[in-house]
Design a protein around this nucleic acid. Sequence first.
DNA 1: GTTCCTGCAAAGTATTTGCAGGAAT
DNA 2: ATTCCTGCAAATACTTTGCAGGAAC
Lengths: 137, 137
Amino acid sequence: MDTEDLKLRFRKNGLKAVPGRLSIVKAITELKNHPTVEEIIDFLKTDNKHISTATVYKALNILVEKKILKKVRTEKDKTRYEAVQEHHHHLYCPESERIEDYIDEEVNEILEKYFRKKKIPGFKIEQIEIQIIGRFR
Amino acid sequence: MDTEDLKLRFRKNGLKAVPGRLSIVKAITELKNHPTVEEIIDFLKTDNKHISTATVYKALNILVEKKILKKVRTEKDKTRYEAVQEHHHHLYCPESERIEDYIDEEVNEILEKYFRKKKIPGFKIEQIEIQIIGRFR
DNA sequence: GTTCCTGCAAAGTATTTGCAGGAAT
DNA sequence: ATTCCTGCAAATACTTTGCAGGAAC
């Protein structure tokens, strides 16, 4: 994610382009692993960027609200975060707690087509997300 | 879920068929709404069954481990629980935090067939769960 | 200059743990 | 008899909040 794009995106959402927020989003995109708050802070520490826990939490909440980030939750306690990008799904291994993005236009089309035909009474579908549970080898 | 069946299931898993556990699983099946711990305790209170928070948490963790219950997590903080039954998916409305089970053999078959053909390199699929996000009306 | 961000410490909520007594096997 | 469950209170883990100073607009 390009820094200037990101700044624009912040401003479009009425957010100031402050270093804290920028570095948080950059950390999440660079880490890739759907990091926890702890992992984000550690990453920034390694980068010699100090940022307090409270600031990270505050920034994360705002960014989720503005749909720049998204929460990812597993059966474990800690919330993980990812940068919102194209429509994607997750490969998840409960044992290692590893999560990978899974992008597959074909399956999207199949599901979209299926649910266009097969309506669910009383429910308006906005998005479909698949969680593919298994093991990495 | 029948009480005797449940007791058998407990014993098969090396768990004692104690009242606490029985009433918790019954509460979850009767509540249907993927209840939180608080909702489970409130439900039991109404039933004049007192049970301490710690006991509920301990029981829930054991039952999840033994695969009699399952955690259901949303972007909100509180963990919700459901009784494990047939393979199903979730309709989820973030606004109302309402979750409904969605059972659809047809979509299971479509996905199964699709992923039998289309392998994901380095990943062994065990289960596929769809989260259908939208709004109830 | 105004509004919003940042950090610290304190508070809040959800969940876990240790231990002593009690119930199921 | 043994093993495991139950409840209480205390502890822990994660996240939020209030406030004062500082940075972006």
